[in-house]
Amino acid sequence: MCGVMAASDLLTLTPAGLYCPSGDFHIDPLRPVPRALITHGHSDHARAGHGQVLATAQTLGIMALRYGPDFAGAMQAIAYGERVKMGDVGVSFHPAGHVLGSAQILIEAQRCRLVISGDYKRAADPTCAAFEVVPCDVFITEATFGLPVFRHPPLAQEVEKLIRSCQLFPDRAHLVGAYSLGKAQRVMALLRQCGWDRPIYIHGAMEKITRFYQEQGIDLGDVRKVAAADRPNLAGEIIICPPSATQDIWARKFPDPVVAFASGWMRIRARARQGGVQLPLVISDHADWDDLCTTVEESGCTEVWVTHGAEDALVHWATQKGLRARPLHMMGYGDEGEDEPVSEGAA
């Protein structure tokens, strides 16, 4: 049990992001710092140019893939559950279930346990380690989908929607917009679970990261990069690409494409329509409202800080539950990558 003073002394908010003075490190800093702990490899959390980086081996691998091998002065890998001492505090990483290598970070001080969730989800994901509840006094959570309208539906139902559409429109290519790191590979794995045994085609921009997943032992079946000349011949096939590619000149050569988008935002119809999406798939790598609430309760915390997303509703809910709750209003952390640029050799 720790008091308000103790907790806010242990972790403070600086322009670079969350900072632990006792251990002299930042967590997911937004600008270069001497020592950074990184929860996961998405570019808004994992940036290049830090002095030292502590993260899971998989996150380090993803960063190297993104930024080149010299993305930081020094890197140290940490396994899930392993505890290291940093200054006056102990630090350990625990699975967050968000993407491959993603972690929550537990900071243990003498009288206080603090968990920084990073981005997390509790729904099934065959491509990464499952979320573990880490008991704590202060739970610092994301709230990307922090409104009670966000209740993610059963995954199989969404994937079946896609497969059914391929059967109904065998003359049309099905372009599935999905964030390159994590979502894309999860959609592939879910398709395999639902029995889709045809080759899955991918945009060139997600080839490297997908191969990385496969090298890490994630079975995705037959995954092929789309060659420019193939595009007119992919009627009835599933092609996974960065969301913005569905609106790109690249998308034109496919036969009468059905534009799908795999994201938690697809729960909101206006959002899907604005994006020109014809087949919204509610597949999210973030906790939905029910899971956010459940996780706060299961953590046993007495205090909740909300880093980013729709803070107000979750703070309201936690306060009603008798918890101390406050929004951090952190800027710079994105949602589910709607504007991810297409780069790395579009094809």
Binding site: L147, P148, V149, A310, D312, A313, H316, W317, Q320
Partner: peptide
Amino acid sequence: DPVLFAMS
């Protein structure tokens, strides 16, 4: 809860 409804 009316607050959550209004926000939603």
